[in-house]
Computed example of a mutant assay.
Amino acid sequence: MTQQNVVLVTGATKGIGREIARQFGALGWTVVVGGRDLGRAEAVVKELVSHGGDAAAVRIEVTDPASAQVAAEWIEEKYGRLDVLVNNAAVIAEGDDAVSAISAKTLRDGFETNVVGLVATTQAMLPLLRRAEAARVVNMSTELSSLARVGDPESRMSTVLTAGYNSSKIAVNMLTVMLANELRGEGILVNAADPGNCATDMGGWDAARTPAQGAAVAVRLATLPADGPTGELHDESGRLPW
């Protein structure tokens, strides 16, 4: 059984998730690359190993609770515990639009992945996290989930009309705070990370920030000391207002 820290990153086959996996690999962690397509996850593992990292691939479709449970059983058998869970898998559902225009299906599709899938994955991994000495959970969120920022008519955030994505990430923030409260006595820190708008499929390839810049905040929150914050939303500069 490995003595290295073990991290699971969901949605790690591309974009920010892939970069989070790379950065953990550079730190010498054992990286479990989670993805819906096992072949693509294995390609990322091959890349990490070629740079001297220790990595393995696992198929995990967050909208399928059975998939998360199978992944947890595989991690338990291979490593015996999990030190960090990064809930990165997320979507901006097709047709996401303003509140006045979004369809019920689009709203449901976004919440199914971004909220329900996050909860199912976290529940499956919690027994393994509780076996670690200082486990951390990082939920990827966004400045678009900040009511203070979106509610400011002078803010650029107020002009982004993806009602499904924004509201699902507000739900992620609440789940982050509630889980942090639930685990506070166990030494498990739970925080949400805003990577900013990065050049990815989701953020658009003309975005100013790189995936590496976006990943850094998640890695920082995942490696907090025991006296670090919990139940907060952070970007690269520090805590963001809810």
Rank of each mutant, 00 (worst) to 15 (best):
E154Y: 01
A101N: 13
G214P: 03
A216S: 13
E112P: 10
D235L: 04
R136A: 14
V91Q: 05
V31E: 07
S100W: 14
R130Y: 01
Y165E: 03
S146Q: 10
T13M: 08
Q69L: 00
A68E: 01
G196P: 07
V116T: 14
V219D: 11
K14V: 06
A41G: 10
Q123P: 03
E73Q: 15
W205C: 03
V115R: 10
V172W: 09
A57E: 11
V62A: 00
K14G: 04
G187S: 09
A199P: 05
A208K: 15
D109G: 00
E19G: 01
M157K: 07
R220I: 00
T30P: 10
G187I: 08
I60K: 06
D194N: 15
V70F: 10
L118P: 01
V137H: 12
L129F: 11
N88R: 07
E19L: 05
P225V: 07
A192H: 06
S67L: 10
G204M: 07
M157F: 13
G80S: 03
P229T: 09
G95I: 03
A148R: 13
V99Y: 05
Q3I: 04
R156H: 12
A207E: 12
T2W: 04
I20F: 01
M202W: 09
R136P: 10
T230C: 12
T63I: 12
L221Y: 07
A104C: 01
P211S: 09
L126M: 15
G35Q: 02
A66T: 14
G52M: 02
M202A: 04
E73L: 13
T162D: 15
V31T: 12
R136K: 12
M178S: 14
V49G: 05
L183I: 06
V31W: 03
G15I: 02
G17Q: 06
E112K: 10
Q213T: 14
A55M: 08
W205M: 07
T13P: 07
G35A: 13
H234P: 11
V49L: 00
E76C: 02
V58E: 15
E76I: 10
G238V: 02
G15L: 09
A215T: 02
R149V: 04
A57L: 12
M140A: 02
S50A: 13
A132M: 09
V33H: 11
T230V: 09
S168Q: 09
D83R: 01
T2Y: 06
M140K: 00
W205G: 02
V6S: 01
G196F: 07
M140Y: 03
